[in-house]
């Protein structure tokens, strides 16, 4: 009975560890208490924000699927303008996707960076979503540090 309980506990711990999404905080950002169910929320002193979340991804959903889905949502439906998009290779070798957008004029001159990494797992896949935003002149100089943190995280 004890052995069974230990086995269940170990499996539970493994499951928890497996679902946890680890993230490196970009240089110049400080983690703050997570208020909205994000895995990580970090702020810079001048008010830029960096967050990470991960979500269940259907097994058939590839990275290309998510690329199209997020672009459709942001660029087509909400009027964001794509500034840059491309692949992002993590230090682990995982291939991700990076998208930098300009917000519609109604939201001011903001930049929004979105990165996606698809993590295949046994049973169900995960899609990691990294977001960073702030006024253009404030966040753009931080992009290298943010990319570095993303590369180190996935």
């Amino acid at each position: 009975m004890i052995a069974l309980l230990l086995r269940v506990a170990a499996l539970t711990l493994l499951a928890v560890l497996a679902t946890a999404c680890s993230s490196v905080v970009p240089e110049g950002f400080v983690p703050v208490p997570n208020r909205y169910g994000r895995d990580l929320e970090a702020l810079s002193a001048d008010g830029a924000i960096y967050t990470t979340t991960c979500h269940i991804s259907p097994e058939e959903a590839t990275l290309d699927f998510w690329k199209i889905a997020v672009k459709r949502e942001l660029a087509e439906r909400r009027g964001y303008a794509i500034v840059m998009e491309g692949d992002l290779r993590a230090k682990s070798g995982a291939l991700g996707y990076e998208l930098v957008l300009r917000t519609p004029a109604s939201l001011g001159d903001q930049r929004y960076m979105l990165a996606l990494f698809l993590e295949p797992r046994w049973g169900e896949n995960r899609v990691h979503v990294i977001e960073a935003a702030g006024p253009a002149e404030l966040i753009e100089p931080k992009f290298p540090a943010i990319r570095e943190a993303i590369r180190a995280s996935y």
Partner: peptide, 22 residues
């Protein structure tokens, strides 16, 4: 519409409006 609610919560509106720089 895709049934993935997190896609709808992407964007500066949600990011900054929910605890970001104000």
């Amino acid at each position: 519409a895709l049934p993935f609610s997190w896609i709808g919560s992407l964007g500066v509106e949600n990011l900054l409006g929910r605890g970001g720089a104000e």
